[in-house]
Amino acid sequence: RLGRHWISPPGVNLYFSVILKPDIPPAEAPLITLAVAVAVSSVLRTWKGVPADIKWPNDIMIKGKKVGGILTEMRTSGNEIDLVVIGIGLNVNMPIGDLPEDIRSATTTLEIEKDAPSDRAGLLRGLLAGLDNAYKNLLNGNKRALINGWLSLNCTIGNRVIVRDSNRTITGIAENIGQNGELIVKLESGGTEVVNAGDVTILKN
C-alpha cells in the first residue's frame, strides 16, 4: 500500500482476515473500519493492559508508535454490499531488530511494551470475541455510540496533520469525524475538507 513494504517474520506476529456480509449501505462501510479499530484497541487495553489507541483511519498505536493496522476491502453490487474483507495485522513477539532501521523508531510490538512474550492464540480468541461484539453493535445501528467510542480511543483529533491520498496532500487540524467515519480537517486557509480515505501523518507541535 502506497508503495510500502510489509515485513513480518514467520511465527511471531498475528495477521488474519475476517469476511463480513453487513446489511448496511456502501456509504456506511467506513464505519466497519472504525468498529474494528475500536475493538482491537479495546482488547489490547483490557487483555494486554497496554494504552492502545487509533490513528485515523486504520492504524493501531501505542505511545505514538505503530503496533498494528487494519485493511478493509469491499465488493458491491449496485447499492448493496456483497462482502467486506477485514485484514488485521499486529506486531506481537517480533524482535524490533528484525525491522529496517528507518522504521524502528516509529514501530513497537506487544513484547516490547509488556517486556514479555504474548500468547498469540489467546490474543486471537480475544480479538475475535471483541470483533464479534463490535460488529453486532454496528448492525444494531447505533452509529453515535460507535463514533463516541472511536473518539475516546483516538490519537488523531485535535492534532495538526498531513493527509495524503492518490490525488492530493492537505495540511490542517484534524477537527472531528463525520457520521460515516470520514475525517474532517480544518485547513490552514480557514476552510474545511472532508476526507474519506487517505494516509495521515500527525505533526509534532
Rank of each mutant, 00 (worst) to 15 (best):
L2C: 15
L2I: 14
G3K: 03
R4Y: 13
H5N: 15
H5R: 15
I7A: 03
P9N: 08
P10M: 09
G11M: 09
V12W: 12
V12I: 12
N13T: 01
L14W: 00
L14F: 04
Y15D: 14
P22K: 03
P22N: 03
D23I: 08
D23R: 11
P25S: 02
P26I: 05
A27W: 11
E28V: 01
A29H: 11
T33S: 12
L34T: 06
A35C: 05
A35T: 04
V36K: 02
A39N: 03
S42K: 08
V43T: 10
L44H: 05
R45I: 12
T46D: 15
T46I: 11
G49R: 00
G49T: 03
G49K: 00
A52K: 14
D53W: 12
D53K: 07
D53C: 13
I54Q: 05
I54S: 04
P57K: 00
N58Q: 07
M61I: 09
G64W: 04
K65I: 05
G68V: 00
G69L: 04
I70T: 03
I70S: 02
I70D: 01
L71P: 10
T72I: 14
E73N: 10
R75F: 12
T76C: 08
S77C: 11
G78L: 10
I81E: 10
D82C: 13
L83Y: 14
V85C: 12
V85K: 09
I86Y: 06
I86R: 01
N91M: 10
V92W: 00
V92I: 02
I96S: 00
E101L: 12
D102C: 04
T107Y: 07
L110V: 08
L110A: 04
I112W: 07
I112K: 10
E113V: 06
D115Q: 15
A116Y: 10
P117I: 02
P117M: 06
S118N: 09
R120H: 08
A121T: 15
G122A: 02
L123F: 07
L123T: 05
L128I: 14
L131R: 03
N133F: 10
Y135F: 12
K136T: 13
K136I: 11
N137Q: 14
R144V: 06
A145M: 13
L146R: 00
I147S: 02
N148P: 06
W150Q: 02
L153V: 03
T156N: 06
R160I: 13
R164D: 12
R168T: 11
T169D: 11
T171Q: 15
T171N: 15
T171A: 14
E175I: 07
N176Q: 02
G178A: 11
N180I: 06
N180C: 06
E182R: 05
L183M: 12
L183D: 05
V185H: 07
V185N: 06
K186Y: 01
L187I: 08
V195P: 00
A197V: 08
A197T: 13
G198W: 03
G198D: 05
D199K: 09
V200A: 05
T201P: 02
I202G: 05
I202Y: 12
L203C: 00
K204P: 06
N205Y: 13
